[in-house]
């Protein structure tokens, strides 16, 4: 069996919450609290959760924009958890990121051309003439005119700016792209254009995606596998079709039921509305972190934390669930 492209073992990212006059760490925000998951070459793993569940922190830790507190990240068999900045440089070519708001993530003082060819400068790839040609090719690949190279990011719409962000991310022909809410800031008619572009690029370049989003319908459309995250932990992992057709975790069921469907005929379907708010990750609930909102809560859930256990899915695909019960 080949080793996975990316292997995450018990990853934790805790942020100190400072208090008192000496500003000592009074508590810790457990944004990511013990996540283990693998990602295969060419696969799209969707990561779904509500705001504050730690999904963006997880994405940033994988590209090492944040240093993990604990755990191990293995990329193509190499442990990259504690690599220095310098030793990280080859990894940066292979792992790229696309951000939610391309208006904020693009330097407004650089032309689109220099934004894209910046990557070649940093990694010392090619001669200036080659860099220019390659930049124009990349623009074409993401559906922008060659004239865009000499213009500035503010001259473009949100959807076009996201295309620029994508051109930057694919410039070094990476193996993995972490997409952090890449379409949630875009209008409906533009969302589908960007999703189609990501699908095309994946087919052309054998890319792997970690696709982070809160919209389960979007994630289901683009992903092969889906992981459901709540308060820094994984609740359920499975193939995209299985997660939707047969959700096993009460939180997954609630998430699917809560999505407003653009079909008036489905208006009166049974709904399961979760009560209360997401608890604070600084002081997460004991036992199962979901127990404060779970409609099936038992005493065991308050005392004992469920492990992410393996299940057999009905179609034979690997499936994991963090719940004490088979509901």
């Amino acid at each position: 069996m080949t080793s996975p492209l990316l292997k995450i073992e018990n990853l934790k990212v805790h942020f100190p919450v400072k208090g008192g006059i000496l500003l000592r760490a009074a508590a810790h925000n457990k944004a990511v609290d013990g996540i283990s998951i693998e990602l295969e070459q060419g696969e799209t793993l969707g990561l779904v959760g509500e705001s504050g569940c730690g999904k963006s922190t997880f994405g940033k830790a994988i590209v090492r924009l944040l240093k993990p507190t604990e755990g191990k990240i293995t990329f193509e068999g190499t442990d990259v958890t504690d690599l220095s900045r310098k030793a990280m440089k080859p990894l940066r070519r292979d792992v790229q990121m696309i951000f939610q708001d391309p208006g904020e993530s693009l330097n407004s003082r650089l032309t689109v051309g220099s934004l894209i060819s910046e990557a070649f400068d940093i990694h010392g790839i090619g001669e200036p003439a080659w860099r220019r040609t390659r930049t124009l090719e990349l623009l074409e690949q993401v559906g922008l005119p060659a004239a865009a190279a000499d213009r500035f990011p503010f001259e473009f719409s949100g959807g076009q700016r996201q295309r620029i962000g994508i051109a930057r991310a694919i410039a070094l022909e990476p193996k993995l792209i972490v997409c952090d809410e890449p379409v949630s800031a875009l209008d409906v008619s533009i969302q589908s254009q960007i999703l189609n572009l990501l699908l095309d690029l994946q087919a052309d370049m054998q890319l792997s995606y970690l696709f982070i989003a809160h919209d389960l319908a979007v994630v289901k459309h683009i992903s092969d596998r889906i992981a459901i995250m709540y308060l820094g932990q994984l609740m359920e992992v499975g193939s995209a079709d299985e997660i939707y057709a047969d959700p096993r975790h009460p939180y997954t069921r609630a998430l699917i039921a809560a999505i407003p469907e653009p079909d008036p005929a489905r208006r009166n379907r049974p709904k399961m509305i979760l009560q209360g708010d997401v608890p604070s990750p600084i002081n997460p609930p004991s036992g199962c972190v979901f127990h404060t909102r779970c409609p099936h809560v038992q005493d065991k859930c308050k005392a004992e934390k469920p492990v992410l256990r393996d299940l057999i899915a009905s179609d034979g695909s690997p499936r994991q669930l963090a719940c004490h019960f088979d509901l």
């Binding site: 799209t44 719409s157 959807g159 076009q160 209008d187 409906v188 008619s189 533009i190 969302q191 589908s192 254009q193 999703l195 189609n196 699908l199 389960l216 319908a217 979007v218 289901k220 459309h221 683009i222 992903s223 092969d224 995209a240 079709d241 939707y244 699917i256 999505i259 469907e261 653009p262 079909d263």
Partner: peptide, 24 residues
Amino acid sequence: GLLSSIPRLNSPRKTKLPTIEGMV
């Protein structure tokens, strides 16, 4: 165009979505 371009939970995965070309 709007109605057909949104991904739905029961639509087939990883297929190209119909789009409205261009922008507003």
